[in-house]
Amino acid sequence: MANSKKRIPTNHIVGFLLSLVMTIVAAWAALQSDLPVMWIIIGIMALAVLQAGVQLFMFMHVTESASGNGHVPWNMMFHGFALAAIVVAGSLFTMSFGFSHDHGDNGGNEQHHEQHQEESGY
């Protein structure tokens, strides 16, 4: 590992700053901005995936060649996340898609919630 003698871990500092910025942008978009809800959800989910990438590549050394483990670590992660996407999107599709629930006292905007959930498709 080439940089094991380096005093300043540049990679980690850059990764940390990127994560901070992405967290703040996501929080701002969700809490302060007037963007359409659909855009917010797509945007912050994209930021979450990017941040996960920062953790994996900059902090966890997922593609470190010195490990001698080749492509296996990132393959495990990639397939784990692919399965996760299928499980979550599939569950929403079979259980929530086109289904509205309205239990009277708490109704009103509940159907609205469902709409957004489905469209987000996360």
């Binding site: 996501a26 969700a30 809490l31 959800i41 912050i44 930021l47 979450a48 987000s120 996360y122």
Partner: peptide
Amino acid sequence: FTSVYLIGMVL
């Protein structure tokens, strides 16, 4: 944080 808290506060 994103899909529970932020989306929970947006929707």
